[in-house]
Nucleic acid binder design. Structure first.
Lengths: 78, 78
DNA sequence: ATGTGACTTCTAGTCCGTC
DNA sequence: TGACGGACTAGAAGTCACA
């Protein structure tokens, strides 16, 4: 799993958890609606400036959007 | 402290801890020699693709390069 | 409400150099 | 070894129309 996919999944997950549409998130973070969609489809390598704006709107820390997804193994650990 | 400054400081610190020069890091991560220096001077908003390559060379996780610096208060916490 | 292509503009990122 | 400038190219950032 490359970094774009990681970010794409975290972004989509964080957005859904906030109950926002791509359009709403885009508006709040002052980026284009289609750009958010493009990021979730891993089309671009987002810059940290935009990443930070998105994180702020989603009320998470910027670094959290780059956290690797939990693997099945994680759930079996003590 | 904005995200570029955060990244700049983490990058420099991680690089020093590995005992690498800007030039060596640049070569290993396949970016330009002057670009590493520019990032440490917060001149650009790095993309996550390059951030990931730098992290790999520095043997840290990509998200760790975006971690906020510890404040003085952190050291006083129980 | 989102996916996509085509397009333009802006900045990331390269490459040359000097201090 | 690192700071910094100028000129350039690649790709991110941003907009629109249509499905």
């Amino acid at each position: 799993m490359d970094i774009r996919e990681l970010f794409a999944k975290n972004l989509r997950q964080a957005r859904k958890e906030k109950g926002l549409s791509q359009e709403e998130l885009a508006h709040l973070a002052e980026v284009d609606r289609t750009y958010v969609g493009a990021l979730e489809r891993r089309r671009y390598s987002v810059s940290i400036d935009v990443l930070d704006r998105l994180a702020t709107v989603l009320e998470v820390e910027a670094w959290q959007l780059l956290l690797p997804a939990k693997t099945a193994d994680d759930f079996n650990r003590p």
